[in-house]
């Protein structure tokens, strides 16, 4: 696994936990333990996303306009693998 894939996996793991918790919260909106868990995940995910993006480029479009070039379109796209 490349360094890029490792950092991306970290974001994917945290994002998945958030997706899962959000779905649970949709039918249990007053569960304080789930809310607290979601907030913890969100803080960790923000950090993981930042450390990925500063090395390997934007995961969301709002992170793509920071330098002197539009980095959104750079490779690889999600369906592409590193050769």
């Amino acid at each position: 696994m490349s360094e890029r894939e490792k950092l991306l996996k970290k974001v994917q793991v945290l994002d998945f936990a958030m997706t899962e918790t959000a779905l649970y919260l949709d039918t249990h909106p007053s569960c304080t333990a789930a809310l607290e868990y979601y907030r913890t995940l969100l803080a960790e995910k923000k950090k993981a996303q930042e450390s990925y993006e500063c090395q390997f480029g934007p995961l969301v479009q709002t992170s793509a306009a920071e330098g002197d070039k539009w980095t959104w379109i750079q490779c690889p796209w999600p369906w592409e693998t590193e050769e």
Binding site: E5, K9, Q12, D15, F16, T19, P58, L59, Q61
Partner: peptide, 15 residues
Amino acid sequence: WIYEKKLEFPVKIGK
């Protein structure tokens, strides 16, 4: 909707 430039779970198939 807003696009995130990653898959929900990794897909890496060589063959």
